[in-house]
Lab assay of single mutants.
Amino acid sequence: NRRVIAMPSVRKWAREKGVDIRLVQGTGKNGRVLKEDIDAFLAG
């Protein structure tokens, strides 16, 4: 159960899209999950 680094707005975006943010690979600094990462995860 790893800790995910993400801005609150990104966490909210993931929740709205029904995405478990822990499954998303972050591409930002220090592995931070970005809004673009959520979109890419949804795109496959």
Rank of each mutant, 00 (worst) to 15 (best):
N1R: 12
N1P: 14
N1M: 10
N1Y: 08
R2G: 11
R2N: 11
R2K: 14
R2S: 11
R2M: 10
R2E: 08
R3F: 10
R3A: 09
R3S: 09
R3K: 14
R3Q: 12
R3C: 15
R3I: 13
R3P: 11
R3G: 10
V4S: 05
V4E: 04
V4L: 08
V4C: 06
V4Q: 06
V4H: 05
I5G: 04
I5Q: 08
I5N: 11
I5P: 06
I5T: 08
I5E: 07
I5H: 09
A6C: 06
A6R: 03
A6H: 04
A6G: 04
A6Y: 04
A6F: 04
A6S: 06
A6W: 04
A6I: 07
A6T: 05
A6P: 03
A6V: 05
M7R: 15
M7D: 15
M7T: 15
M7W: 15
M7H: 15
M7Q: 14
P8K: 15
P8F: 08
P8L: 12
P8Y: 10
P8R: 15
P8T: 08
S9P: 06
S9W: 13
S9M: 09
S9G: 10
S9I: 07
S9V: 08
S9L: 08
S9T: 09
V10G: 02
V10I: 06
V10N: 02
V10S: 03
V10Q: 01
V10T: 05
V10W: 03
V10F: 02
V10E: 04
R11N: 03
K12V: 06
K12F: 07
K12N: 08
K12M: 09
K12W: 11
W13L: 14
W13I: 12
W13D: 05
A14H: 01
A14T: 01
A14L: 03
A14Y: 03
R15I: 14
R15Y: 13
R15W: 14
R15D: 11
R15K: 15
R15G: 06
E16Q: 13
E16V: 13
E16A: 14
E16G: 06
E16F: 14
E16R: 12
E16C: 15
E16N: 09
E16S: 12
K17H: 15
K17G: 03
K17Q: 13
K17A: 09
G18F: 06
G18W: 05
G18A: 06
G18K: 09
G18P: 01
G18V: 03
G18Y: 06
V19L: 05
V19D: 00
V19T: 03
V19I: 10
V19E: 02
D20Y: 04
D20K: 04
D20F: 04
D20S: 05
D20N: 10
D20Q: 05
I21H: 01
I21C: 00
I21E: 00
I21F: 04
I21V: 05
I21G: 01
R22Y: 11
R22T: 11
R22N: 12
R22E: 08
R22D: 06
R22K: 11
L23F: 11
L23H: 10
L23K: 13
L23I: 10
L23N: 09
V24H: 00
V24L: 06
V24E: 00
V24Y: 01
V24W: 02
Q25K: 14
Q25F: 14
Q25S: 12
Q25T: 14
Q25L: 13
Q25N: 13
Q25I: 14
Q25W: 14
G26W: 03
G26A: 07
G26P: 08
G26E: 00
G26I: 02
G26N: 02
G26Q: 02
G26K: 01
G26L: 01
G26Y: 02
T27N: 05
T27K: 05
T27Y: 03
T27R: 06
T27A: 03
G28P: 00
G28D: 03
G28Q: 01
G28Y: 00
G28A: 04
G28T: 01
G28S: 03
G28L: 02
K29S: 09
K29D: 09
N30A: 10
N30D: 12
N30F: 14
N30L: 11
N30W: 13
N30K: 11
N30G: 14
G31R: 06
G31L: 04
G31E: 05
G31K: 06
G31C: 07
G31H: 07
G31W: 04
G31P: 02
R32V: 06
R32Q: 12
R32W: 08
R32Y: 06
V33S: 00
V33R: 01
V33G: 00
V33L: 04
V33I: 15
V33P: 00
L34C: 08
L34H: 06
L34P: 00
L34G: 04
L34T: 11
L34M: 09
L34V: 08
L34R: 09
L34I: 09
L34K: 08
K35Q: 06
K35Y: 06
K35E: 05
K35V: 07
K35L: 09
E36L: 11
E36K: 15
E36I: 13
E36W: 11
E36T: 13
E36V: 13
E36M: 13
E36H: 13
D37L: 02
D37M: 02
D37A: 00
D37Y: 01
D37W: 05
D37P: 01
D37H: 02
D37R: 01
D37F: 02
D37G: 00
I38E: 00
I38M: 02
I38P: 00
I38Y: 00
I38C: 03
I38K: 01
D39Q: 09
D39L: 09
D39T: 09
D39K: 08
D39M: 10
D39A: 08
D39V: 10
A40W: 09
A40V: 10
A40F: 10
A40S: 12
A40N: 14
A40I: 08
A40H: 12
F41Q: 04
F41N: 03
F41V: 07
F41S: 04
L42G: 05
L42K: 07
L42M: 10
L42I: 14
A43E: 12
A43R: 14
A43N: 12
A43I: 13
A43V: 13
A43H: 11
G44L: 15
G44R: 15
G44T: 15
G44H: 14
